[in-house]
Design a protein around this nucleic acid. Structure first.
Length: 882
RNA sequence: GCCCGCGUGGUGAAAUGGUAGACACAGGGGACUUAAAAUCCCCAGGCCGCAGGGCCGUGCCGGUUCAAGUCCGGCCGCGGGCACCA
């Protein structure tokens, strides 16, 4: 061994692994399998630190499990459809296909030097016709199975660009390119019946014990199970063909205090009234401009208009309630009408105060009767309340009990049917875009909407399309749209909508088990490899991607594409934190934020303060940003610097638009892949965000160099060196094996690495025999190999390891070496640490008590006081209470 | 607005309810060197004290407990998701 030269050894060992083909997943029924998967990337063209972190974590697991003797599947692919390719096409004229495959080639080339143990023979991109053709085939199966249907749904419509906009493309209610106010437009679209599975998807969360609790809670809330009842309010006079308004409510126990009805601006009554009332029509139109996202609707100021209509209260028919149109009522949820109860709902109270609607209460708190002002009375449902003149005779109960009792009573008295509902809505998959999987259906004037014949799959995207004008190029393609009806053979039109890219990512994990099968999956392969044993990805996917995948696995099972055991496809989930970085922000003349690249920024110290400015501004006032040489005549300019401050926002999510993306290739180039891998694992616990810092990589590199030097030194030791401390080193080695193993098992890579630092420090200070030192070094190489596989191989080879370190069985710690004979017990007096004693590890508690009380320091603090209580926690602590 | 999470030294962090700050970065001191870099050794939560040592300390307020960073309640701040970003 000579110097530590990562570039040399990394290339060498990567080649050795490739030649031995040790990462090819083998279907070996004799061995247990382990499927580790990282969420596959969108091919943006550049890998970023988040990718490095994600794939390194997966690689640690994959290499560790392989060393444990599992047959490991660790694949990689590309989530390749989506808007960015079309945006690039519009911006630069490059074709989405060329753009995407070009990016894939670039990213793959950037991933190669990381030395990941990936089985590249299974690689695919979702935009490969071979992949999306199988997706189309499954779509048809699911359509035939009744899992897919069409219905009208609203989209954001840009009236200038004449195109549908994603929520992301709507900025302050305006189209991102046209800047025109966005409209809401109804289109007939395809939907998956995910809501049919609401109950099952919710119930099955309990079985996902290896998922983070928070993800299960988020999914449960998203599915949103509620028990409620539909309450019918008869209209005083019929309108729009309706004689009553039906409102779904989860709080019928507050029905007594209902004071108004609010209906959606899209409700049929609202539409009917708007037809003859221009002012009301304008209001409804205004409501629709808010947008389609739940966030915007919830945040918008609550506005309403009195329709002049009234309904009578179902329990107290003499009471007439006004019917309002409210911008907060969604047509998609429930019935598009709700009853307002200002006494016990904050939003309703705000609304009632604003429009001077009556406010009353249905219950009080047991202790008293607070006057309602601007805060609604909404106690936790588990706490007791005292009902006021409850129509079902309920007096005091928790509101949870009150709700149930009210529903039961109303059910029994024919006032409605108690029901369980879910918030989860069906999954709309139609996208009016080119770069996605074509929906394989045909519109025929006589036969209606019919699926394409399977033998005609894949329905391939045409290459000859243009992006010079906005909108879906498939719509205006001269010939692609034209086809013949697969049923009657008459001239017909292809569906020009493509599928939501969430479809592509909802089954790729299954495809990896047989990536080139002529059917969507190969059941024998799926039966062996599924489920994914460890799935790793960003927490931003906690709800949508993971929920859709759970649903899709069930839909695939229902259509015979997955075995029953795979309906929950991810056994264990780990959600990693993001890699963040500072952002540099200034504001333009219009008040909009402008972001700057790190290389355009200069930080300089002036009078002890760090000033962050744009290099270009320095140049403007005559200061060279590189040398910081200040010409005489520019001295006054320094005083201007404070006003030029760039706003520095720490820990911001890395994104292209914020210009704070760090390129991992630079670190790999200067320090090597092992340094990059070690750093992203060492600096923060995996589930937490980690802020990228340049100094971290340097420090890591120093450490690896130290390990290398240490290994060289041990290699140079005379073979017969006796030394001393072999026993201590053996114990330290066993402890390192134990703790590093625990760290990896527990997804605490940062802790595993801390233990490796500790062990390395012990090893470098040890003066044990050559034999013991070499054995310890060999174990160190193995323990490091999941994180830093290249340097581990070199060390392994130099201290006599047989074969490849990557194929060596994981070391085991002798439990006998892990326990110490004597331990140090701290002694607390009234909870404060005052002394410590050294005792045999297995000493009986009674003996520990004696020694503790006899201790000189303890006696000093006791000062003759009586001991009220003495707590001995074996092996941990003694607490004396006086 | 709603749902979820996070908050510990100058920094990243560690701590089955049981010695808060392991491990590392930045920093300080020293060795080596003509010098610097590199390397090695030592110090290091804050305050008081020459020292032995003492007091305070895990975003804030309160509670449970012999014992709370950890559990409970209420706040504050930051981050993620909100169904067409992936």
């Amino acid at each position: 061994m000579s110097r530590y030269e990562p570039a040399v050894i990394e290339a060498k060992w990567q080649q050795a692994w490739a030649e031995a083909q040790i990462f090819a997943a083998r279907h070996d029924p004799a061995r247990p399998k382990y499927y580790v998967l990282e969420m596959f990337p969108y091919p943006s063209g550049r890998i970023h630190m988040g990718h490095v972190r994600n794939y390194t974590m997966g690689d640690v697991v994959a290499r560790y499990k392989a060393a444990q003797g599992f047959s490991v599947l660790h694949p990689m692919g590309w989530d390749a459809f989506g808007m960015p390719a079309e945006n690039a096409a519009m911006a630069t004229g490059v074709h989405p296909k060329d753009y995407t495959y070009g990016n894939i080639a670039e990213m793959k080339a950037q991933m190669a030097p990381l030395g990941l143990s990936i089985d590249w023979s299974r690689e695919f991109a979702t935009c490969d016709p071979e992949y999306y053709g199988q997706q189309q085939s499954m779509f048809i199966d699911m359509l035939n199975k009744g899992l897919v249907y069409r219905k009208a749904a609203v989209v954001n419509w840009d009236p200038v660009d004449m195109t549908v906009l994603a929520n992301e493309q709507v900025i302050d209610g305006k189209g991102w390119r046209s800047n025109a106010p966005v409209e809401r437009r109804e289109l007939t679209q395809w939907f998956f019946k995910i809501s049919d599975y609401s109950g099952e998807l919710l119930a099955a969360l309990d079985g996902l014990t290896q998922w983070p609790e928070k993800v299960r809670i988020m999914q449960a809330n998203w599915i949103g199970k509620s028990r409620g009842i539909e309450v019918t309010f008869p209209l005083t006079a019929p309108v729009a063909g309706l004689t009553a308004l039906v409102c779904y409510s989860t709080r019928p126990d507050t029905l007594r205090a209902a004071s108004f009805i609010a209906i959606s601006p899209d409700h049929s009554i609202a539409k009917e009234l708007a037809a003859t009332d221009p002012e009301l029509a304008a209001f409804c139109e205004e409501c629709r401009r808010i947008g389609t996202s739940e966030e915007l609707l919830e945040k918008a100021e609550k506005l309403g208009r009195d329709t002049g209509l009234t309904v009578s209260h179902p329990i107290y028919p003499d009471r007439k309630l006004p019917v309002w149109i409210g911008n907060f009522v969604l047509m998609d949820y429930g019935t598009g009408a709700v009853f307002g109860c200002p006494g016990h709902d904050q939003r309703d109270l705000d609304f009632a105060r604003k429009y001077r609607l009556p406010v009353s209460k249905a219950f009080d708190l047991p202790g008293g009767t607070p006057e309602l002002a601007d805060v609604a009375l909404v106690p936790p449902k588990t706490e007791p309340v005292v009902y006021i003149d409850h129509f079902a005779g309920i007096t005091a109960a928790t509101s949870a009990e009150g709700i149930d009792a009210t529903i039961d009573w109303m059910d029994a008295h024919g006032l409605g049917k108690g029901q369980t509902r879910y918030r989860l809505r069906d999954w709309g998959i139609s996208r009016q875009r080119y770069w996605g999987c074509p929906i394989p259906v045909i519109h025929c004037d006589t036969c209606g909407v019919v699926p394409e014949k399977k033998e005609n799959l894949p329905v391939e995207l045409p290459y000859d399309v243009t992006f010079d004008i906005p909108g879906n190029p498939l719509d205006r393609h001269p010939t692609w749209r034209d086809c013949t009806c697969p049923v009657c053979g008459a001239a017909a039109r292809r569906e020009t909508d493509t599928m939501d890219t969430f479809m592509d990512s909802s089954w790729y994990f299954a495809r990896f088990t047989a990536p080139h099968a002529k059917t969507p999956t190969d059941l024998a392969e799926a039966a062996y490899w599924m489920n994914v044993d460890q799935y790793i990805g960003g927490v931003e996917h906690a709800i949508l991607h993971l929920l859709y995948s759970r649903f899709f696995a069930r839909a695939m099972h229902a259509t015979g594409h997955l075995p029953a055991k795979a309906i929950e496809p991810f056994n264990a989930l780990f959600t990693q934190g993001m890699v963040t970085h500072e952002i540099y922000k200034t504001t333009d003349d219009n008040g909009r934020a402008v972001f700057h690249l790190p290389e355009d920024i200069r930080k300089l110290a002036i009078d002890g303060n760090v000033v962050t400015v744009l290099k270009s501004r320095l140049t403007d006032i005559g200061i060279d940003p590189e040398t910081l040489e200040i010409p005489e005549d520019a001295l006054d300019a320094i005083t201007l610097l404070a006003e030029m401050q760039v706003e520095v926002v720490p820990s911001a999510k890395m994104s292209k638009s914020k210009k704070n993306v760090v390129d991992p290739m630079n670190i790999i180039g200067s320090f090597g892949a092992d340094t990059a891998r070690w750093f992203v694992l060492s600096d923060s616990p995996p589930e937490r965000d980690v802020e990228w810092t340049a100094s971290g990589a340097e420090a890591t590199n120093k450490h690896l160099t130290r390990v290398w030097t240490l290994c060289t030194r041990i290699g140079d030791m005379p073979a017969d060196h006796k030394g001393e401390g072999d026993d201590a080193l053996t114990r330290a080695t066993a402890r390192a094996v134990h703790e590093v193993t625990q760290g990896i098992e527990g997804f605490a890579f940062n802790k595993a690495i801390a233990k490796l630092y500790e062990f390395t420090n012990i090893l470098s200070k040890s003066n044990a025999s050559t034999r013991a030192m070499q054995a310890a070094m060999q174990t160190l190489a193995q323990l490091m190999s999941p994180m830093t596989p290249h340097i581990a191989e070199s060390i392994w080879a130099s201290v006599g390891g047989v074969g490849l370190c990557a194929q060596a069985p994981w070391p085991k710690a002798d439990p006998a070496l892990l326990v110490d004979d004597t331990i140090i017990l701290p002694i607390q007096i009234n909870g404060k640490r005052r002394a410590e004693i050294s005792v045999p590890a297995d000493l009986a508690a009674a003996e520990v008590e004696k020694i503790a009380l006899a201790n000189e320091d303890v006696q000093k603090f006791l000062a003759g006081a009586t001991v009220k209580k003495l707590i001995v926690v074996p092996g941990r602590i003694v607490n004396v209470v006086i």
